[in-house]
Every structure is written in C-alpha cells, then in structure tokens.
Simulated scan of single mutants.
Amino acid sequence: MKVNDSSQEQKWVRTKVVAEDHVIIPKIELENANADAFLESYVSDLTTIPLDTSKPLWEVHLLDLKTSDAQNVVVLKINHSVGDGMSLMSLVHACTRKTSNHEELPSLPNENRLSSKSMAGYSRLIWMVMLVWNTLCDALKFIATTMFLKDTDTPIKGDFRLSKSKRMCLVHRTVDLEDIKFIKNAMKMTVNDVLLGVAQAALSEYLERRYEVQDLANMMAKGSKCKWGNWIGYMLFPLSLALHDDPLEHLRRVKSIIHRKKNSLEALLTFTSTKILIKMLGVVRAASLTSRTISNTTMSFSNLVGPTEEVSLYGHPITYIAPSAYGHPHALTMHFQSYMNKMTISLTVDPTAICDPHQLCDDLEESLRSIKAAVQERNATQ
C-alpha cells in the first residue's frame, strides 16, 4: 500500500492483507426493481465513495443479483496506482481458468506485429525518417495540448473542474466480435481501427441530435507480456465528427490517421516524459500536468484483449468482462473488452454532460450494423 514518509513523499510499503476487509457482500432487496438498473446504480454510486487509504486500495463486491447478462455479478474496484489496464486485466486473467479445463490459464489471441522491414512501400531509411518526423510532430502537438491547445467544445466534453466530486454513470453493451472481425478483414484493418471508426460514427450520430447538422460541420471546421504497474503512454487521436452518406468514410479516415500514428513513437515518448517529470517534479506536480493535458481533450478510448475461450472464476463461468475507469477529467470514457466471440463496450459518463448514455450505446450498435452492411454491399458489387 502507499503511505507518506517523513518528507511527505508517497512510497509503496508491504502490508498484511486481510481479505475480509476488502470483500463486500451487500444485502440486496430488489422487490419490483429492475436488476440491470440496480446494477448500474450500484456501480455508479461506487464512484462517489473513495477507497480507504489506510489499507490496500482495492475492493471486491460480490452481488447476488441476476441480471440480463449474468446469474451473479463481481465488481472489482481498484485504484489506478496499483496498475494500468493491461496489468490489471492480466491479474484478472491469472485468477481465472478455462471452463473446459480448470487447470489451464486463459488463451489470448496471438499478436502479429509487423516489423519495419515488412512495411510495404517503405525502404528502411524512409521509414526511419518518417518515424522521426511523425514523432516530432506528435510531441509538439502533445506539448501544445498541455499548454494551451484545446479540443472544440461539444456537449460531451464536460467540466473537468468538477470531475472529482461528480457521480459518474457506468453502462455497458455487448456486441458480436465476429461482426468486427468481418469488417476488419474486409477493410484490411485492425480491430482497434474498426472500433475507432465505429466510435467516431456513433459520436457523430449522437452529437447530431444536439446540433443542427450544418452547425456541427461548421464547429468541427474550426476546430501477457505486459509488465506490472502503470506503463501508460498517451496518443492524441483527432476524431472527425461529421455525418457521411457512406459510413465506410469513418473507417477510411481512422485508418489513415492510425497508419501515421503507428509510424510514431508518441506513446513511448509520453510514457518516458511522464516518468522523467515524476522524478524531477514529484508525483503531485507531474499528475497536475497530466491532468491539464487530459482536461484539454474530449474523451478517453481504450481497447483490451480478453480470453478467446470461456473462463471461470473459482468455478463460476464468466459471461462478460466490462472494465472502466473514472476520476480523470473526462465526461466520457470508452472501454472495449473482447471476450470469447463478444465485444463489451463500457461507457463511463458524466450524466450532466451525457444524460442518455444508453442512447449512445444504441448509436454504437447501430453504427456497427451500418458499417457492416456497407461492407457487405461493397463486397457484393465487386
């Protein structure tokens, strides 16, 4: 756990963990209440209750609650200082076993990373020049974002100054992973590219309900091998919020930007610079600078890979995994988590900025359907 030493600097110290202090089993009396609504309310209420700093910063909530997705629910509440998304999900995976064989750990998809030598159309020298140039441009933009450059104001941006005291709303929706893979293969993209395209299309549809279409256009014209702990690098991604007759245009734009971002060391650079700032300025000042950067952007996006087969937690088969995060200055955070043949979309929203998160979930589903239909139509005419 973390404590303050004599100089008031925080440091990690070993402590004895008493499991009973971290496991919470609430008494649930639903009567005629909706179980799904109760779960959303319960998890959202947790965002207003800080973790007890006198003990390790994690809790396990066991809910004897039958929802539309599962027979029971386990809620893990873990402070981000314990680890980043990859390491925490690796911890969850390590606690599970294959349902088909309780002695085996979960299987994760293999990663096929392309080396610089296999990049079509690039010589190694040109690739190195592009890498340096893209990294320099991204670094300058990141510095500008920290100092003064802000995203265009939209209804989903929220007021970061009030984020710590706000009750955040957490919702999720599960879609078919095979639909995403179908689009990925047809468009020669990655799953992450498809998800970004779907998110961009859905946000465009969602914001169109709050702005006239032309006003929105004018507004935008203006403006586990993973290591344990927090190994976080940031990538600033410009979403183009606009309505297109061809939904595949969202994918093309995303693919173009991602292609350039992959030839940049932006994530590594931001991770390294954060580590240097922590050593030079201390955790508090470094966190303040990071918060300033985040507050000048609109939303967070994360995509995590999960087991390809059904896994069980102490003999209980898991039906879905829905990670999320709160406490940072964003009114909207999107997490995508794959598991078996499903993809769960988790949204953490500020209800004062996004009062209808289920509508945004509907838009995400509809955007995926429309993009899939457009791909099928394109394939049929080729």
Rank of each mutant, 00 (worst) to 15 (best):
E40K: 07
Q382G: 12
D159P: 02
S116C: 05
K16G: 08
D176F: 09
L304F: 11
D151C: 09
V283A: 15
T67H: 03
R167W: 02
D64Y: 02
P106V: 08
E40T: 04
V92C: 04
M343C: 15
D52A: 01
N134Y: 10
T145E: 03
S300G: 13
S312G: 02
K342Q: 11
H244G: 02
S44Y: 08
M1E: 07
K98G: 03
K279C: 13
N4A: 15
A120R: 02
A186Y: 10
A33I: 00
C169V: 00
V191M: 11
L243H: 09
K372I: 03
Y339I: 05
R260Q: 13
P247N: 14
L65I: 00
S163N: 07
A186R: 02
K77Q: 09
P351N: 09
A242H: 10
M343A: 09
S338Q: 03
F160K: 10
K55M: 03
S324W: 04
A267W: 05
R292I: 01
R97A: 09
I257M: 11
D215E: 15
T293E: 05
T53V: 07
G229R: 06
M299I: 00
A37C: 04
T15P: 00
A139M: 06
P323S: 08
H250C: 05
I49K: 12
S346L: 05
K225G: 15
L108P: 01
D215C: 10
M128G: 11
N341D: 11
E366Q: 15
P351H: 06
Y122H: 09
T67N: 07
I49V: 10
V92Y: 09
I78E: 01
C355K: 13
G315H: 04
R161E: 10
V175F: 06
L140E: 03
H102S: 14
T99K: 11
M299V: 01
A286I: 01
P317Q: 12
R378H: 13
M187V: 09
M187P: 05
D36A: 12
Y206F: 15
I183W: 03
G233V: 05
S100H: 07
N379Y: 10
V305M: 12
E266H: 06
K141D: 13
S300H: 04
L57H: 07
L63I: 01
K27N: 14
Q8A: 15
H22I: 01
S115E: 07
H335I: 00
H328I: 07
Q359T: 03
A325D: 02
C95N: 06
K117S: 14
L114G: 11
T298M: 10
E208P: 01
P26N: 04
T135W: 05
E365M: 10
L65D: 03
S273G: 06
Y326N: 01
L105P: 00
D21T: 00
D5M: 10
V60C: 05
M220D: 05
D356K: 04
Q8Y: 15
E309G: 07
L203V: 07
V213M: 12
C355Y: 13
